[in-house]
Computed example of a mutant assay.
Amino acid sequence: MPNQNNSNNQQNQDKKYKDYVEQISPKPPYIKNYIMAFIVGGIICMIGQGINDSYMNFAGLDKQTAATCTSITLIFIGALLTGLGVYDLIGKRAGAGSIIPITGFANSIVSPAMEFKREGYVLGVGANLFKIAGPVLVYGIGSSILFGLVYYIVQIIFK
């Protein structure tokens, strides 16, 4: 019986503490965060569209090639801004607006690499390069293979 009383007392104290923490914790400004994410994400997309249009109109690239070059350019810009410390400042204000576009992917690869550079290029940069982006790549590639197989089987069955 004494163990059950101690357990109940501990649970009551835990609940009181959680309630207290919830009561005094500042509430995040959700609406402001949504608006900033929308604006910054939109600006990143507008820049990407401008780069894409420039490749098509001034460099004479076809739509597919221009889209590929635009992705490469945005990844480079995201990596460069991360290296200069600017992308982190954007991310603090924009939240998901800076993470979701392809520039956020570049940031997720470059940030851990920069953080562990002092440990050397092999054990630092090489070992930690895909620490954040690795699971995204694994599940993205895995799901694309799965959906590709399902699509292939459906094409065979309904032909």
Rank of each mutant, 00 (worst) to 15 (best):
G85D: 02
Y139M: 10
I102T: 12
F76G: 05
A127W: 04
Q4N: 08
N52R: 15
E115I: 03
G120F: 00
L84M: 12
L84E: 01
I156L: 09
Y151Q: 10
P29S: 10
F58L: 10
Y17I: 13
V154C: 05
N12P: 00
Q11G: 05
N6E: 09
I51F: 06
M1G: 12
D53N: 13
I157C: 08
Q11A: 13
G142C: 07
D53S: 14
D53F: 13
K15R: 13
A66E: 01
V21R: 09
L89F: 09
P101R: 04
N3D: 08
T70W: 06
T103E: 01
P28T: 12
K18N: 11
I43G: 04
V110R: 02
L74N: 02
Y17M: 12
Y20N: 08
K16W: 07
L80F: 14
T103K: 00
A59G: 02
T70L: 04
D14M: 14
D14R: 14
I72C: 02
A94K: 09
N57K: 15
P26E: 10
I77Y: 02
G91E: 05
Q155W: 05
G148Q: 05
C69G: 03
M46I: 13
G148I: 04
M36V: 11
D62S: 13
L149I: 15
T70V: 03
T70D: 03
L74F: 08
R118M: 07
F76D: 00
T68L: 13
P2F: 09
A96L: 15
I77C: 05
A94C: 03
L129Y: 05
G60S: 06
G134W: 00
T103C: 06
G95P: 04
I141W: 05
A96Y: 07
A37L: 04
T65D: 06
A113V: 04
Y20V: 04
L89S: 11
G124P: 09
G134C: 02
A66W: 03
K92E: 10
N57T: 14
K27P: 02
I47P: 04
I99S: 12
